[in-house]
Nucleic acid binder design. Structure first.
Length: 362
DNA sequence: AACTCGGGGGG
DNA sequence: CCCCCAGAGTT
């Protein structure tokens, strides 16, 4: 096997690249706060999906010091709907670290950045190069795909060995050109030309020396060795309102999906085929809820939410409780109009959006 | 090393 | 239905 021609790769890439191919608001200005924020938002997230969130965060918190002073729930609400909520929790931790321990200044080295919560190898390299012009190459999904194709490499990318291997390759590919420019270029190239499914090989400037293109294995690269496992879960939410237009919600604090978000009191069962009347005998039925005082109102259709590692089927059981106390255990009794201030999973917001189900409780 | 953490877009 | 997306943290 012949040695990959990295100088050809590099020169073709940089010749192809222009900053305006994918305009992004944080590209133009070397503001470490903006660059850090954008990189956290874009982890496992498409630019089109993350962009509005970036704009809203910058508008709400123009500086890292202002973000650091924010309340947790406010940040979670801004993050609502974007997924991977540990990013929002770590975002706030890191902001407070920068603001209160580093005097509002981000670390300006790869190793220093790596110590921030939520900043791993990719993000540290991205910030170090984009904000501080450090000579480090990024290794993200685009880079795995491009390099495994260019070298027709069958090394799986989802192992420790694979990650080290491709880090070596991208370091070779980078050479001594500006990492700041190279990193932008290679990720734009992956998003616009060397895409996962319909790559533009016919107009690719590197096709002449792309090993996978030569032997028609482009769509077999990169290789993964692990298979995805999914589990099914069945949620039954208790939507309990009173005649003063208040509803009971609680915060998810367990180590599970949607940590720190809010929800209605939840019962989980082994199937969706459960009578509403049988829920009162569920072992997790809240102690503060006197089943006898609840008037059943309506049961929703099943709502399906497909996540990466689980498929969730949810049913919403609406009840009326006449003599609802002001506080119920650790849960909260909230005016319906104020529910918009709390961050909910998409699944629950879909229920809110389906007004035909609400039957003038909301 | 294996597992878990969301949600949306495209084929 | 599947896979992938400017990955990271925990076990």
């Amino acid at each position: 096997m012949e040695e990959p021609d990295w100088s050809f790769f590099r020169e073709s890439l940089l010749k192809w690249y222009r900053a305006d191919r994918r305009p992004m608001p944080w590209k133009a200005i070397d503001n470490p706060y903006h660059i850090w924020l954008s990189e956290i938002i874009l982890q496992q997230t498409r630019v089109a999906q993350g962009l509005p969130y970036f704009e809203r965060f910058v508008a709400a918190f123009p500086t890292v010091n202002e973000l650091a002073a924010a309340e947790d729930d406010v940040v979670m609400k801004l993050w609502e709907g974007l997924g991977y909520y540990s990013r929002a929790r770590n975002l706030l931790k890191a902001a407070r670290m920068v603001a209160f321990e580093f005097g509002g200044e981000f670390p300006d080295t790869y190793a220093g950045l790596l110590k921030l919560p939520g900043v791993g190898p990719y993000t540290a390299a991205a910030i170090a190069s984009f904000a501080f012009d450090r000579q480090v190459a990024v290794l993200d999904g685009n880079v795995f795909r491009i390099l495994s194709r260019y070298t027709n490499d069958s090394t799986p990318i989802d192992t420790g060995k694979g990650k080290k291997h491709y880090q070596m390759l991208v370091d070779d590919a980078l050479g001594d050109t500006s990492a700041k420019r190279f990193n932008q270029a290679i990720m734009d190239f992956g998003a616009l030309v060397c895409t996962p499914k319909k790559a533009l090989c016919e107009s690719c400037p590197m096709a002449a020396r792309c090993a996978a293109y030569r032997v028609a294995t482009v769509y077999e690269r990169p290789l993964k060795e692990k298979k995805l496992k999914r589990r099914n879960r069945h949620f039954h939410y208790l939507v309990i309102s009173d005649d003063k237009e208040r509803t009971i919600i609680e915060q998810r604090l367990d180590k599970d999906i949607w940590q720190n978000l809010y929800q209605f009191p939840l019962l989980e069962t082994n199937s969706s085929d459960v009578e509403t009347s049988s829920l009162a005998t569920h072992q997790d039925w809240p102690e503060f809820l006197p089943a006898g005082e609840l008037t059943f109102v309506k049961r929703s259709r099943p709502f399906k939410q497909q996540l990466t590692h689980q498929t969730i089927m949810a049913t919403f059981h609406q009840f009326q409780w006449k003599a609802m106390p002001k506080k119920v255990s650790a849960a909260q009794v909230v005016k319906n109009k104020l529910l918009v201030n709390f961050a909910f999973p998409r699944l629950i917001n879909k229920f809110f959006a389906d007004k035909s189900l609400l039957l003038d409780l909301f």
